[in-house]
Nucleic acid binder design. Structure first.
Lengths: 146, 146
DNA sequence: TTAGAATATCAAGTTCACTTGAGGTCAAGA
DNA sequence: TCTTGACCTCAAGTGAACTTGATATTCTAA
């Protein structure tokens, strides 16, 4: 049962067969071999790989970035602890940054609502001009650290 | 200086004029009036509105969802505390959910690296089958609550 | 006054991440 | 045997979110 068909992988990961073929085109996953009839056969580790891709997408990474990230993982053997550590360390800053951004937004929304300042001139969430303007355009106070 | 040109709004928000015209087509923002020459003139509140759109996008909302969200804001007057409270309450669950998901992912990555289980069969982050399989496909342990 | 920057419209093009469609092969069950 | 379903390839289509290009007008500063 080890060699998995594209349908197996699709079912296990929730990713459509067409998407799996697309990922293969993009160099994100690879088949172990083909049957005589030309059908794809994947190794079990591919399920992990595909799950990984979906999680990375949730993080906001593009497929290209994910491919780069995955390139540090071996495709011919089961990734070991060192492999995952490398990946984890690469992700950590991004993860921390995203969490911090969302928390900042949440706290600011709460704070602003609490003090009612959103209707005033001083709200730093939705009045990115003033002091913030010097640091470039956009909603700085949310997207950046203050 | 109150009536702002499209260039002013672009500069203040970091959003290209073409994108602002596009947002107008999509019903996300509106002009206050046009000059005799047909040039767009925006009210100051439009900067907040556009900043809001960008922040919402960072949250993962589509322009359509954002339009719905913004429809609760008045376009003809400066939004007041009640307006923002309504919006904040609508966002809060989504915000909390996203933060929780990212924290879950971070903690799991840390935990898995710490115990080295990512190379074993028991890692719940990258082995979404087994028990998790019953709850549908995909990397459940990260995307859902456990 | 005159060059250049900014604005306008409208259609078409771009990128990303896939999906759909057309046309065909192959294995298993009624 | 037949038909259903899973698989194959390759090209084209999709939707979201804009951008670019063509062409024209208008504002601004030397």
């Amino acid at each position: 049962m080890d060699p998995l068909s594209i349908g197996d992988v699709a079912e296990r990961t929730g990713v459509a067969p067409s998407a799996l073929r697309f990922y293969e085109d993009q160099g994100l996953i690879h088949v172990d071999h083909r049957t005589d009839a030309g059908h794809r056969r994947y190794r079990r580790a591919t399920i992990r790989r595909v799950s990984f891709i979906r999680v990375a997408q949730q993080l906001g990474l593009s497929l290209e970035e994910i491919r780069d990230s995955l390139s540090s993982l071996p495709d011919n053997r089961t990734p070991d602890e060192a492999d995952w550590t490398r990946l984890s360390e690469a992700w950590r800053p991004r993860l921390d940054e995203q969490i911090a951004m969302l928390e900042r937004l949440r706290d600011r929304l709460d704070g602003c609502i609490g003090c009612g300042c959103l209707s005033l001139k001083h709200c730093k969430l939705l009045n990115p001009h003033d002091e913030a303007a010097a640091r470039g355009p956009g909603p700085r106070y949310v997207l950046d650290d203050v």
